[in-house]
Write a protein that binds this DNA or RNA. Sequence first.
DNA 1: GAAGTAGAGTGAACAGCGTTAACAGTTAAC
DNA 2: GTTAACTGTTAACGCTGTTCACTCTACTTC
Lengths: 237, 237
Amino acid sequence: MAESGREQRRAATVAEIKAAARRLLISGGTAAIGLRAVARELGLTPPALYRYYPSHEALVGALIADLYDELTAALMDLQNTDEAADLGARLYLLANGLRDWGLANPAEFALLFGTAVPSPDAPDHEETVGHQAAMRFGSLFKELVAQIWHWQPFPYPPDEQLGVELVEHLTQESEHFGGMPAGAIYLSLTFWTRLYGLICMEVFGQLHWVLPDATAYFEAQLYEIGLALGLDCPAPE
Amino acid sequence: MAESGREQRRAATVAEIKAAARRLLISGGTAAIGLRAVARELGLTPPALYRYYPSHEALVGALIADLYDELTAALMDLQNTDEAADLGARLYLLANGLRDWGLANPAEFALLFGTAVPSPDAPDHEETVGHQAAMRFGSLFKELVAQIWHWQPFPYPPDEQLGVELVEHLTQESEHFGGMPAGAIYLSLTFWTRLYGLICMEVFGQLHWVLPDATAYFEAQLYEIGLALGLDCPAPE
DNA sequence: GAAGTAGAGTGAACAGCGTTAACAGTTAAC
DNA sequence: GTTAACTGTTAACGCTGTTCACTCTACTTC
């Protein structure tokens, strides 16, 4: 119900707009997603797009949210295909899946993760659809790590080694990590930090100067950072 | 000689242009470095800038090269102030110096290291002044690591652990690392990868959602990745 | 020292951009 | 069947990077 002919048509147009925007993104990079260019792609005049988005920024924001959701769904699917896979294997699936998605869709990856702008000029940034989608994406990792912890707790550094300040910060995040202790959160954060940095550098070509193909390096690193979480699945041959 | 009044005046104007561009960068981010905005800042008309740079892109490129050189010089100074510091301590100075520079100059840092665009559309990218300055910056790290290796060789993973493919890639870079073996280059690359990723994430605010102040986390991580290179300087209290 | 020339800057203009306003045609609702 | 909402258009504004033709100044050369 409520799917009257007009609403249906509108939803289709919105989808076409985002599809055109994505096409432009892929072929010409982030800067190519022009409002006029999108309109041209659909055979419309530029002002027509304002019936669907209040600004160019909102249009790009909607595309960002869509891409986050697509990535999140793809990673969830990947984990659920191997029902038999244990939680550790799922983390490797997630890590490899994120990398593969980034390498397969570098333009989209750059839009999502390239220079998230430390602009404090937008105080309502938290309410952006893109930001919310990013949070949903981040939860994927946090929840899986928490599950791994409760399934097979891994050894973690004692509080004294981390220092009081860091322990205090990490403990505040404990509720988001299923009540894990500071040291375990520290290891999880290390995992995410290393994985994220590694993938960004590879996708953005900042590893080319030393490694034309970073696949082997990535696998070695992934194995290494998985060890810290008590995982020992895919040894590099 | 050859520093006639006209050339002197020209050099001064070039400096003013880049200073104005940097001012705009700081106050309004990368997108604020407009050609017209720079001209406005100097009290000139836009076409006048074309006497100094062939395009807006070239102007920004010159600024990028300048910033790389400034950063490189700052890090070299930092290392040379403590003449007594051993090579290991210098690496920590370099790492902390890079982080401090990024936190103190986030806009400049974003211009240099934010989304280096995996665009294969510019085949002559290698000849850019910015690219050359980036290489000089990269040499800082490579040379220091090679010095550390020859000063105090650290244990490194055997070739069998890395896999033949990765060893082959790393060995090709051996000449740039003072003849270090593959495993030692691997550890050095790991150091750089983790350091770079960590600083980028902190400066770009991608750690805020879990750590409002990442100082303690950075110090713990730096200590950790220094251990792999046989360094054991600044234990976190 | 006068003539010639290269450099530095201006004003007008072009194509492209995001955006707004006023206006038409179609489609759903009461 | 009349109204109202929705979708689209045309025209225009101010902004951007860039080019062209022009002027004026300062240095070079004879």
